[in-house]
Simulated assay, not measured.
Amino acid sequence: MNNKQRWMGGVVLLGGGVLLAALLLKGKDEIDVQHQQFPDSSEQVDSAEDHPNSKLNSLTVDVATEKRLLEQQRRDREKSVAEQEARAAEFLAMQQQAEADAARKAAEEYAALNAHRLGQQSSDNIPPELVEDEKTKQKRLAEDKAAAQKKLEQQKAEQQKAHASTDTAKKEAEQKAALAKKKAEEQKAAEEKRKAAEKLKAAEAQKAADKKAAEHKAEEKRKADEKHKAEEAKKKAEAEKARKLLEGDDAKQWMVQVALAANEANADAIAAKLRAKGYKVTKSPTSKGVRIMVGPSKNREAADATRKKIASDASLNMKSAWVNEWVPLDKRN
């Protein structure tokens, strides 16, 4: 060790001695102060013998109170001594720690100086304190490294566990999302299928309704055609009948024309009134209307008699009837 290190050690020892002496003196002063405040009972007895008047006063002091005061003094002294001993022990520990730090620092400086001077560190020149501290340091470093490695492994395991939990949760979420998507697609497909079925059903119903309407329309048209054909056949039959009646065996016949109707309906109404009276009625369509005639008669006189009879019948109101000479169509020039 060099002079600087020895000087530092001496300063530390001197400072420790001064502090210890100060603590001891302070404890002694406190004990003296307590003795002054609470004198011993022997001193009180001597004082009582020297002063008879004070003896009478001291007899009035309670013995229990005196014992209590003495016990309190004893406890205070013991407490003070214990505190002084504790402070002394603390100072001694501080002094030992300071000496150890100074010795370690001196050894480190000495080792660094030798290493710098010789280019390498020699174990023979290193003080035993430094060797021991180096072993402790290596052990501590190894323990710290092992603890750090263990902590790192624990953190890594926790991270792996957290990642595994996250992956599991993510996988479950993806599965739930896939199931929800599949369910939504199935519902969508079912809805589309239902709509398509409803649309097809509506189209079939519309088609059936259109078919029924077409059939109904065709049926009405067929009935109308049949009715028209029947009416045409009826008209043709009546015309043929009239032709046969008018033509007869002779080429010339006589008819009483009672009216010229504007249409077939009016002609039918007039013919119905005449038939109700028992007349034989014949209708003959022309370019100007439908002729309604009664007859035929074999001669003009018979036809004129029929005309007069019709004109005189007020219920028929056919006073403008006249007699026509009727020639069948196939015998006309």
Score class of each variant (00 low, 15 high):
residue 227 K to A: 12
residue 293 M to P: 00
residue 111 A to Y: 08
residue 153 E to T: 14
residue 193 K to R: 12
residue 202 A to Q: 07
residue 195 K to E: 04
residue 161 K to W: 15
residue 253 Q to K: 12
residue 237 A to M: 00
residue 164 A to S: 14
residue 190 A to Q: 07
residue 66 E to F: 09
residue 151 K to G: 15
residue 101 D to M: 08
residue 229 K to M: 10
residue 125 N to T: 09
residue 305 A to C: 00
residue 9 G to E: 12
residue 275 R to F: 05
residue 295 G to I: 06
residue 261 A to P: 02
residue 128 P to C: 00
residue 192 E to T: 07
residue 255 M to L: 14
residue 144 D to V: 15
residue 60 T to C: 02
residue 255 M to K: 05
residue 37 Q to S: 12
residue 59 L to W: 05
residue 64 A to P: 01
residue 253 Q to W: 07
residue 85 E to W: 08
residue 59 L to E: 02
residue 208 A to T: 08
residue 175 Q to Y: 05
residue 309 K to A: 05
residue 155 Q to C: 09
residue 289 G to L: 03
residue 198 E to R: 09
residue 248 G to D: 14
residue 182 K to E: 02
residue 101 D to P: 01
residue 297 S to G: 03
residue 222 R to Q: 10
residue 267 A to N: 02
residue 9 G to A: 13
residue 246 L to N: 10
residue 260 L to I: 06
residue 79 K to Q: 14
residue 124 D to N: 03
residue 132 E to C: 11
residue 151 K to N: 14
residue 125 N to W: 05
residue 262 A to F: 04
residue 271 A to E: 00
residue 173 A to P: 00
residue 15 G to R: 06
residue 81 V to S: 11
residue 249 D to R: 15
residue 241 K to G: 09
residue 180 A to H: 04
residue 34 Q to Y: 04
residue 250 D to W: 09
residue 201 K to A: 10
residue 305 A to H: 00
residue 249 D to Q: 15
residue 280 K to T: 12
residue 136 T to F: 13
residue 27 G to P: 04
residue 242 A to I: 11
residue 123 S to W: 03
residue 331 K to T: 08
residue 11 V to C: 05
residue 176 K to G: 00
residue 203 A to F: 02
residue 102 A to W: 04
residue 289 G to F: 02
residue 223 K to G: 12
residue 305 A to V: 04
residue 272 A to V: 01
residue 240 E to H: 06
residue 63 V to M: 13
residue 284 S to M: 05
residue 230 A to N: 08
residue 274 L to M: 06
residue 104 R to A: 11
residue 93 A to E: 08
residue 194 R to H: 04
residue 159 Q to A: 15
residue 154 Q to E: 14
residue 254 W to T: 01
residue 203 A to I: 00
residue 171 K to A: 15
residue 62 D to P: 05
residue 11 V to D: 00
residue 239 A to W: 01
residue 124 D to T: 02
residue 319 K to L: 08
residue 153 E to C: 11
residue 259 A to V: 08
residue 241 K to T: 08
residue 307 R to G: 00
residue 13 L to M: 07
residue 80 S to Q: 13
residue 269 A to P: 00
